[in-house]
């Protein structure tokens, strides 16, 4: 019958407490100083940022002694322009998001591209991190798949990497 009860409305709401690890605390402190830290695996030399406290490939623990500072600047190797109406993103404006490969590493970090019109975004651009502001000494809560502690990326204004250089970087990214 048309007036039958066909649905049940409910809201699921849960609070989670997440005590940070030592590595996470040091990472957060570094973000507050606009520095980017990573752990270098003593066996395979892969870099992890934020530091995980272990290398999942070699299954070895990493600690403060494996901590190094990496450049918060790099080259835009890929990007997309989002339609916020379709992706349910807060803020509601069309925005570009991209992958920046950090200088001297094989790390690509995803984030919003700031200070450049979506139509002008192109691979090879030199970018630097736009940092998030800490709230009471901790990173604000945020979901999603992007970089941690880095709001996004803005152009440094330096000359672009060439197409060949970008190809090299992409090749490097694919070397598992």
């Amino acid at each position: 019958m048309s007036d039958d009860v066909k649905v049940l409305n409910s809201v699921v709401s849960l609070d989670y407490e997440r005590p940070p690890t030592r590595a996470a605390r040091r990472y957060t402190e570094a973000v507050g100083e606009k520095r980017l830290i990573a752990h270098r695996c003593p066996e395979c030399e892969r870099l992890y940022t934020p530091p995980k406290g272990y290398c999942p490939v070699c299954v070895v623990l990493t600690t403060d002694e494996h901590e190094i500072e990496v450049s918060p600047e790099g080259v835009l190797v890929s990007y997309t322009v989002t339609n916020p109406d379709k992706l349910h993103q807060q803020g509601g404006k069309t925005s570009a998001r991209g992958d920046v490969m950090l200088d001297g590493t094989r790390i690509t970090l995803m984030g919003e591209l700031d200070g450049v019109e979506a139509a002008d975004v192109h691979t090879g651009m030199r970018m630097r991190a736009v940092w998030v502001e800490l709230e009471d000494g901790r990173l604000p809560s945020s979901g999603g798949w992007g970089a941690v502690g880095i709001k996004g990326w803005e152009p440094t204004g330096e000359p672009d990497a060439s197409r060949e250089e970008v190809q090299e970087l992409l090749k490097k990214a694919g070397e598992s």
Partner: peptide
């Protein structure tokens, strides 16, 4: 560093559950 506050994240989502004929009859009742 030991006094770093513990972050609390709230995960909240609204759900609309379709009931199917059996549970619909129970809820209509």
């Amino acid at each position: 560093m030991s006094d770093t506050p513990v972050p609390i994240d709230t995960v909240e989502m609204p759900y609309v559950r379709t009931l199917g004929p059996v549970i619909s009859r129970f809820f209509t009742g």
